[in-house]
């Protein structure tokens, strides 16, 4: 098996995650899909690290994880405060900017 299959898998997961972001209305699930996309990227990074034979790709994946952690913390805080004011976690309900 050629390790390039990992890349195909990463692309597939990324696409599934992206589609999920577009389809789901529950903000928490949307967030999970974003996490899925980030993880797919990490897999690609790790595979590229193997491809090139150095560890830079893994360092990038590591940074991605840290940033993703920060993002999840803030994002979930936003969802909680949104839910507190609107009693809903649907992203469609936050459409007040519409004319």
């Amino acid at each position: 098996m050629n390790p390039v299959n990992y890349l195909y898998l990463a692309g597939l997961l990324f696409t599934i995650g992206a589609t999920g972001v577009l389809i789901r209305r529950n903000a928490i699930v949307v967030f999970m899909c974003v996490e899925l996309m980030l993880n797919a990227c990490n897999l690609a990074f790790v595979t590229f690290s193997r491809l090139h034979g150095n560890l830079d790709g893994q360092v990038f994946a590591f940074f991605t994880m840290v940033v993703a952690a920060a993002e999840v913390v803030v994002g979930l805080a936003i969802i909680v405060s949104l839910f507190r004011t609107r009693h809903s976690a649907s992203v469609d309900d936050a459409s007040l900017m519409k004319l």
Binding site: A18, V21, L22, I23, V91, D92, A94, S95, K98
Partner: peptide, 14 residues
């Protein structure tokens, strides 16, 4: 096109 739904905008981005 500006329907105010973040998901619609996300589709355009995607």
């Amino acid at each position: 096109f500006q329907n105010g739904f973040a998901r619609s905008y996300a589709v355009s981005m995607f």
